[in-house]
Structures are given as C-alpha cells and as structure tokens.
Computed example of a mutant assay.
Amino acid sequence: MTPLATLQTPALLLDVQRVERNAARMRAAVTDRGVLLRTHVKTSKSIDVARLVIDPERPAITVSTLREAEIFFDHGMHDIFYAVGITPNKLDRAFDLRARGAALMLVVDTVDAAHAVASAARRHGDAVPVTIEIDSDGHRAGVRPDQKDVLLAIAAALVEGARVAGVMTHAGGSYNARSDDELRHYARLEREGAITAANHLRQAGYDIDTVSIGSTPTALFAEHFKGITEVRAGVFTFFDLVMAGIGVCGIDEIAISVLSSVIAVQPDKGQIVIDAGWMALSRDRGTAAQPVDQGYGLVCDADGVPIPDLIVAAANQEHGLVRVRDDSPCPLPDLKIGDLIRILPNHACATGAQHDAYQVFDVECRAATAVWPRFHGW
C-alpha cells in the first residue's frame, strides 16, 4: 500500500468501485436486454481492468489495434472484433492470430479493401468473417445505408475468399448531442442504419449473423435493440468530461484522474502551476465545443472533490497552468507548493494513453493498493 502523499506525480489513479458501478450500468442497458456487450478494450488497454468489466461467460471484446488483439488473446480472450478498417500490410498478422485460435473478425468499407482481404484469405486458406462498415450518421468512415450498390459490390468482392459476416456502425455523431432526445435520435439512426444495410445483404442472399452497433452514449440511451446482435462500447468503463458534458454520466462517475503536485503559486498571474502538462493529461480538448469548456481537465482536491470553477486552462509538455474560469467569481484556492490535486480527464482513452500503469486507489485509506499495467503500441 502506497500512501497518496508518497506517490510520484503525475500518476494515473483508478477508482475500482466506480469502474464496477459503470460496468453494472452498461450491462443493465445492454446485456440484460439480451444483446451481446462486446466491450471496447482500447479505453483501458489493461487486462486487469478488462476483467472487471467483461462478462466471464462470454468474454467478447472489441479492439482498435492488432497489438490489443494479440495481448488479450494471450490472456484468454479469443472472441475479438478488430473494429478499424484493415489495411493490406496488417493482413498476414491478422491471419497469424487466427491461426493461433483467435476468433478474429475484420471490417472493411471499400471494394479494394474487400479484394485485399479475400486474396489474403485464399492465400491462408481461411474464410475470415468480415463486416462491412456503415456510415449511419455522417461521422466518419463507412458506406451509407442507402448505398445498396456499393454495399453489394463490397460483399461480392469479399466472398472471393472471405465470409460476409454482416455489418457494423459507430454513432460517433452522438458525441455532438446536447440533450437526452438528441442522444435517443442518434441511437435510432445507428440502429436503423445498421438494420437497413443488413436487410440489403439478406435480400441479396447473404446469410449474415452480425449486426453490430456501438458507442457509449447510444448504448445507454437506445430505446431498444431489436434486430441488433451486439453492442460495442468502451469509454463507459471510466467515463470522462466529454461524456459528462453531453449528459451521459455525472462527474462523480468518472473513474480515473491524474494526481498532480503544485510546483508554483502565482497569484499575480492568477494561476497555479502543476507538474501535469499535456504529457500527463493529453492534448485532447474534447470539451472545447461543449457548453462548458473544461480546458485540459477539471481540478479536484486530493479526495477527488471538484474545486469550484477550477480547471487546467493551459498546458505545456510537463507544466499545467491551473486557473479559475474567466467568468467565475470564485477565488484562486489557497494551495501551497507540494499540495496534491486530482484532474478529471476530457477523454479517458487519451489521458490513459499517456501513462504506463494505473495506481489502484482506495478512497477510504487514501492510498494506492495495487499497480495495474497498461500497454501501448499498434
């Protein structure tokens, strides 16, 4: 057990109790309605954290890198969806993982990518299951649900060697929602887009078994999952300020924070300097476009209680500049050199990626009781 005061800062703190509550909430929203929850492990990149969240009876996961797939496979999680469009230079590595026993599913959204996968599948003698990505809300990649000809051309290219498993989509547009009604709207777009595309494939004679959707906001605000086989979500594991800003979670549900030390107090400049810059917090400014801009993170005291209107307003590589919001009447808190504060992240995935390990934090004894490693790379 390491007392909070003796931890080297900056350090990434993890509240296990909050993770468990967040996981229970997502299971109630998805699994309890009879749909597979395929947890996205890119958020934690940690075997220890994943074991808190994933259903041990059906340990299905989503990954965003092949390194994630390989590491989680080595730790007994074999049902894996690599949910980023596959590129030709990664195909042999993906098929090697399948040859080791992984039930790895891939995704494409172009005819050229489909041809590449089919060619590799023939070369390896492995009819890999592949989903076609659908653009259900104009957010990022994928085929629009109404582009039936493109969808069927991709499917025709895939069956030259691979298997058309179904469709997948991600309602990234939900991150722009500003009300519960808008969140439900994005959830409907996501569901209806996936089902429309799946029906095009079925009507063309493809026997598909996967209709995969997913984002934390839409998973929690979907009215139902009729016609959907699985939901992919990841940031619910920790939540963050972006999720709080769109009304998906409360500040008190955010499970990670960055512990930092005060290194200078500058009342003449209206700021406090801390040892957590963007190397500890990340450069993600996901709340900048929200009604409440949280800067580089919301500042809390050492117990995790937010200090009124205090944010990390600017960040250099190893320095954070803590200030009161411009329009706030609150005073700069009376902090001293060496005092500890905790910073809640804008984007849990990005902040986590800056650290090699979680300090598992016990709230009652104000100490780290374990160190859980994270991994990096692609």
Results as ranks from 00 to 15, higher is better:
127 A>N: 05
291 P>N: 12
196 T>Q: 15
213 I>C: 11
18 R>E: 01
254 I>H: 01
151 L>M: 11
127 A>C: 03
349 C>M: 13
361 F>A: 00
67 R>H: 10
276 A>W: 00
237 T>N: 06
117 V>T: 08
237 T>I: 15
192 E>R: 14
133 E>R: 10
58 R>D: 14
144 R>V: 03
172 G>H: 09
377 G>C: 11
338 G>L: 03
234 G>N: 06
363 V>R: 01
204 A>Q: 08
293 D>L: 12
323 R>Q: 15
328 S>W: 05
81 F>W: 10
146 D>K: 06
82 Y>K: 02
208 I>S: 12
6 T>L: 14
137 D>M: 09
226 K>S: 13
296 Y>L: 04
278 W>S: 13
262 V>L: 09
211 V>Y: 11
340 L>G: 01
31 T>Q: 13
249 C>M: 06
368 A>W: 05
325 R>Q: 14
295 G>E: 04
56 P>Q: 08
353 A>G: 15
323 R>F: 04
275 D>T: 09
374 R>A: 06
113 A>S: 13
356 D>A: 11
78 H>N: 12
281 L>D: 08
175 Y>F: 15
373 P>V: 10
106 L>A: 12
144 R>H: 10
24 A>T: 06
89 N>I: 05
249 C>A: 15
322 V>T: 07
174 S>G: 08
45 K>P: 00
285 R>C: 09
99 A>G: 13
63 V>L: 09
161 G>I: 07
324 V>H: 03
75 H>F: 04
239 F>D: 04
351 T>Y: 00
224 H>V: 00
240 D>M: 06
211 V>H: 11
271 Q>R: 14
74 D>P: 02
355 H>D: 01
286 G>Q: 06
53 V>T: 03
77 M>D: 00
116 A>I: 00
122 R>I: 07
14 L>R: 07
249 C>I: 04
202 R>K: 14
215 S>P: 10
53 V>A: 05
128 V>P: 00
313 A>L: 10
176 N>V: 00
258 V>I: 13
